[in-house]
């Protein structure tokens, strides 16, 4: 299992965390290539469905990154996230998926170093956990079979 390179999806809000990731990049900070960044306008846009979807199509872990509390561009988007993610984690555990595979962090536009650190630490966490159990249960990824007219 030493060769296990996790696949991590990171949802970054446009106004803080994506800018933070950008700063980490332009400052040439080192962080693992495990992450695939998806830019969203606000962490509040990250429906728990997106997180499940990411896990169901092969992500080993999902990071949700937003502005620090009080700093959300849309005032309270990140407060909604702050309540959703813990509830999602509870539900995930009941579904047999380790709650550590989903993590919420605040990263501001000026925190390039923090961004790199979050990615580093999360990658370590996921490496310890190993591949997502959902990857092994691949048949479960098909979407609902009824169309909505």
């Amino acid at each position: 299992m030493d060769k296990f390179e996790p696949k991590i999806v990171a949802f970054c809000c446009n106004w803080c965390s994506y800018a933070g990731a950008d700063l980490a990049g332009t400052s040439r900070m080192q962080y693992p290539s495990t992450i695939r960044i998806i830019k969203v306008m606000c962490s509040g846009r990250v429906s728990p469905f997106f997180v499940l979807k990411a896990l169901s199509v092969g992500a080993d872990g999902v990071l949700v990154l937003g502005c620090h509390p009080g700093d959300c561009h849309y005032i309270e988007g990140n407060y909604k996230t702050l309540r959703r993610i813990p509830l999602l984690k509870k539900a995930l555990q009941q579904l047999g998926i380790e709650e550590e595979r989903v993590q919420l962090e605040w990263v501001s536009a000026s925190e390039g170093a923090r961004f790199a650190e979050v990615v580093n630490e999360f990658t370590e966490t996921i490496k310890k956990l190993g591949p997502s159990p959902l990857r092994r249960a691949k048949e479960s990824t098909q979407e609902a079979t009824h169309v909505q007219a």
């Binding site: 728990p48 469905f49 499940l52 909604k80 309540r83 959703r84 509830l87 979407e143 909505q148």
Partner: peptide, 17 residues
């Protein structure tokens, strides 16, 4: 409701809000 694939996360989202 129409257009939603996963009812559970839909309710979870609303409830947390």
């Amino acid at each position: 409701v129409e257009g939603v694939i996963d009812q559970g996360t839909h309710f979870l989202t609303a409830l947390a809000s």
